[in-house]
Design a protein around this nucleic acid. Structure first.
Ligand SMILES: [Mn+2]
Ligand SMILES: [Mn+2]
Ligand SMILES: [Zn+2]
Ligand SMILES: [Zn+2]
Lengths: 154, 154
DNA sequence: ATTGATAATGAGAATCAATATCAATAAGGA
DNA sequence: TCCTTATTGATATTGATTCTCATTATCAAT
């Protein structure tokens, strides 16, 4: 398992260095934190998680690293209506499947659903193609989210 | 046409009073500002627009009124990735048809498209129904947006 | 292992949209 | 007109995010 760790480590390391970034303790710790939860953490939550093992890592570094990770498409950033960005490993780096989100406007509960994803993806691809052609956009991203009230809050 | 104005005025007035709100000059001016543009204005832009005719109206009032209007589902609030909320009259109060948005990540250009809306709406309705049942959510809102680079920026 | 160029970092200040406070004002029912 | 109270403007405050800058860590070349 130490072997497994190292291997995973070097994959991440390779990814960073491949983009011209250095492989630092802070970045390891932040990746670690993101990998070991299924939550959609805010920057501050990532900071708190990271602090437990590495109390010297600063909040600014967390923000900076998250920005890099989003730029590398390793991490996805979401707006769920509370006034802070929320982050999650992109599906290809996590155990989760491609999913979209259903958010309670009242308590903030977030449901990840995969049930209707198939049709959604298909439609999105078709729409993307149409929009790209008609409006000359190079599309690289989409957002679909539903908002409402969860059982408890309605 | 003065007749027409008054009639429109009283419709808005009725809508406000029907919700227990008073019908004030500030609110008239803000509605007016929102009605007379097809832009997606930020709160500050609404404030600037309103200032031209009514220089006494304050920014806080603009924020408060927009909040009310969003609550009344008269105005829609969007996040286009610049760090400010953007507002637009809901389609039933504007000349625009139901549309979604395509946003340039670089220059912020926003395209309103209606081409593929039909299929999208259909899928959204189906998905909403499925999600409502499965997760016991009362869904009242959705977001679909595409992000990319416009011709100029790619 | 040592060095040197420079990327990365932590602490704290700065930014800036949005919200809260509060005394003064205006809306509208009686 | 009078009274109650919602609304308002000015201003302070909040809170997430970004910036600054002196210090430190990374890593390729010795
Ligand atoms: Mn998720
Ligand atoms: Mn629009
Ligand atoms: Zn809820
Ligand atoms: Zn552009």
């Amino acid at each position: 398992m130490s072997c497994r760790r190292e291997k995973e480590g070097s994959e991440w390391e390779g990814r960073f260095r491949g983009c011209g970034y250095r492989w630092t303790l802070s970045r390891q710790a932040i990746i670690e934190a993101l990998s070991s939860t299924s939550d959609h953490m805010s920057a501050e939550e990532v900071y708190n998680a990271v602090q437990k093992k590495h109390s010297s890592i600063g909040l600014a570094t967390v923000y900076r690293t998250l920005e890099i990770l989003v730029g590398m498409a390793v991490v996805l950033s979401f707006d769920f209506g509370d006034k802070r960005a929320r982050y999650e490993l992109a599906e290809r780096f996590s155990k989760k499947d491609h999913h979209h989100h259903l958010v309670c406007n009242d308590c903030g509960k977030v449901v990840e659903y995969t049930e209707f994803i198939g049709d959604e993806i298909e439609l999105l691809n078709k729409t993307e193609k149409g929009l790209s052609k008609k409006y000359n956009f190079k599309i690289d991203n989409h957002v679909i989210q539903f908002y409402g009230l969860c059982k408890k809050c309605q």
